[in-house]
Design a protein around this nucleic acid. Structure first.
Lengths: 208, 208
DNA sequence: ATTATCTATAGATCTATAGATAATGC
DNA sequence: ATTATCTATAGATCTATAGATAATGC
């Protein structure tokens, strides 16, 4: 029996929304993604999230402990795919490091620009500095370290002392994140071309 | 009679704070800058701002119409100095365009990283997209246009069609803004060296 | 019986205004 | 008299819990 179409256990929902086909928790995440990015995290109320997900405010607590949990899940979802790809690239010795770095940059920009919402900006929220989001920070630090390792493996990068390598890494990482934020202002541009141009720029910065 | 030391008209403040020497409105702006960047804009209450500025919540309304006005003023203060410098550079034909672009990048990074708070991140707030902040957007757009003009005036930039020029401008502007945001994570680095490295990177992106 | 919802609400805010008060200025 | 404050508060939230309810499952 499919979970989406069959009758479900429990009291029916009050507001008869068309069945999205998503699990309730995913409905909440989708709603949160839209509201957090368009209205802001703090300004978004639990009621707004729940209602957009098709349930009443109190019902949300059946699935998540509150807004923070939604934010944590969304943040991790922005970095995890890039990190998985970065790990693949680190393990692959067949391609030169410069080319692998280029691919990582392109993939990172595409993943973050392709989504319907600008989740990339959420990591700047002051709340995110909290211990509560240590998981996200760990994943992001690992991603940044992958950039560093790929950079270090290039001919140009191999010649750098640690301080210099850290600086280059920050510049490349800053470009990627900054470009994602700026991209929103001009979304009429095709993402794939933009991602490639950014990857080119990253390599120029890296000095490869 | 100095405004800072002499007795002042009006009922004395309740909480006896040391006289900061600032005008009350500036005390509010300073308090808001700190709180907006550390606790977040929406999460910061009017009470918190007023109290940190040394007055009671209600007294704030004597100087500003609310939080929005404070945010608008802070945002403009982050772009106005860079824009003033950009105008100077545009008018100066003695130096080559590439060098002027380099100086603008360096100044922009220095101005935003040198301040005690990371005001640069505030422009990403969803609230800022509102009509209320049209003034800030206008100033920021003018600054971005200065980048574009300097880029176009370089030998490499002169050869670009409009689409290409826009792309390069976005990449350079994205680098500058992204780097400012990333910088916070490693503030043990001297700002001036960092600003110069960023300006170098910007020129490499520009293809100059 | 189990489950996913709902309704209702206590307790804790937060903003913006109204009106009182304590200084200086003339 | 003018001014910069203060205290008090109405009205409008918002979060998280308690307890009721309406389905399915056995």
């Amino acid at each position: 029996m499919g979970t989406s179409s069959g009758r479900r256990v429990g009291r029916p929902r009050a507001a008869g929304r068309p069945d999205s086909g998503l699990q309730p928790r995913d409905e909440l995440l989708t709603a949160a993604a839209e509201l957090f990015t368009t209205s802001g995290y703090t300004a978004t109320t639990t009621r707004a999230v729940a209602e957009r997900a098709g349930m009443r405010q109190a019902s949300m607590y059946h699935y998540v402990s509150g807004k923070e949990e939604l934010l944590a899940a969304l943040l991790e979802s922005t970095v995890t795919p890039s990190l998985a790809y970065a790990r693949e690239l680190l393990a692959d010795d067949t391609a030169p490091a410069g080319e692998r770095l280029w691919r990582l940059c392109r993939a990172d920009v595409e993943l973050l620009c392709a989504g319907p919402y600008n989740l990339g900006g959420l990591y700047l929220l002051p709340e995110v500095r909290t211990e509560r989001f240590a998981g996200f920070h760990a994943v992001r630090a690992e991603l940044k370290d992958a950039y560093r390792q790929l950079l270090a493996a290039t001919p140009a990068g191999g010649a750098l002392v640690k301080t210099e390598l850290d600086l280059r890494t920050d510049l490349v990482f800053g470009l990627i994140e900054g470009v994602i934020l700026v991209h929103r202002s001009g979304p009429e541009r095709p993402v794939s071309a933009f991602a490639e141009a950014t990857a080119d720029a990253a390599l120029r910065i890296a000095g490869v």
